[in-house]
Design a protein around this nucleic acid. Structure first.
Lengths: 192, 192
DNA sequence: GTCTATAGGCGGATAGAC
DNA sequence: GTCTATCCGCCTATAGAC
């Protein structure tokens, strides 16, 4: 019974992410969502306490995934270039595995309520600082060109962000080719 | 008098873009906007016909700017690498000149009404095809590495997109340094 | 657990006075 | 041109029956 409840909650979260991506958090009503689930809007409040809770759960699930994966990479023995490349590959994989959730987190985090919003921003800042540190150490170690750290940071993070806008299951391009192409452009450059 | 009306309309559009960026199109009410302008919500309907019109105007202004600038670049005599770099610089400049408008266009285009939405998507597709053609010709001419065209296309477009999320007037980094850093990463690569 | 009914609020937009 | 007043619809969320 508690299992059943979890299953349904998972379904609600999954459909919520899909709808939020499609129509935006503010553009999605609980009635829309309920219709997808096949119950009445009022019945959903048996599983959740508010619409905000849905967004909060989605955003922090993704945010926490990023943070714990960065922590894992930091602990490995590898060059900074290897660590950064591993991070890029992980970003792409998370996006493919949870494309709707990532999309919502990227675009609708601003609709988080006061408390969660500031917590979310803090986490994101912390994550960005972690990646920036990898870049700076890489430059110090002579592995990277001496470009502006912030610019490099956001160029990398953005270069993986678009995958969410573009990738759909069954695309003719494989995950591996996708990862390799992005890494080639970012680390070796487009120009011959 | 028609000048006065234009001036106020421009002000409304400008404040609308700022608010939409901050709180999202759906999260912004006409009452919010009116307060910024210093008049009552009802009075704004003297200048505009609907909230939708504001979004439509913002999105198509930006979209048209991109398209006409691509057309100009296509006509120049230059290598494909030079054309692409010029395009990247223009993207960055538009973003700095009209950061709120670009932000809204990037994030809230999905709230466009039926008709405008499909027109907008068509324009975007057309633009993307134009940039993709530059890439493909560049590969054919031996200027670029033979990476997947779509991946290269979206990596470039995304790499300039983040500027909108990050750049603020008075940042310690100059426009030139910003442009040069992004172009270095994209075309020469991060790795030494 | 799911429903019907509905409270209560906010939103876009209009009517019409001044 | 700007206001006040207001319509009307949609929204989130709750109450309470079954």
């Amino acid at each position: 019974m508690s299992t059943k409840k979890s299953k349904k909650l998972d379904l609600i979260l999954e459909e919520a992410a899909k709808l939020f991506r499609q129509k935006g958090f503010a553009g999605t009503s609980m009635r829309d969502l309920a219709e997808r689930i096949g119950i009445d809007a009022a019945s959903m409040y048996h599983y959740i306490s508010s619409k905000d809770e849905l967004l909060r759960t989605i955003c922090f699930n993704i945010s926490n995934t990023y943070i714990s994966q960065l922590a894992e990479i930091e602990q490995t023995e590898a060059t900074y270039a290897e660590k950064l490349k591993a991070l890029v590959r992980l970003h792409i994989r998370i996006m493919i595995a949870k494309s709707a959730e990532v999309s919502v987190t990227n675009n609708d985090w601003k609709y988080l309520a006061e408390d969660s919003l500031s917590r979310f921003k803090e986490q994101r800042k912390k994550y960005e600082r972690g990646v920036a540190a990898l870049l700076e150490k890489g430059v110090a170690a002579g592995e990277f060109q001496a470009v502006n750290t912030s610019v490099a940071l956001f160029t990398i993070l953005s270069a993986v962000r678009w995958v969410e806008l573009w990738w759909r299951p069954g695309r003719e391009i494989s995950t591996e080719e996708l990862e390799n192409s992005i890494i080639t452009i970012l680390f070796k450059g487009l120009e011959k």
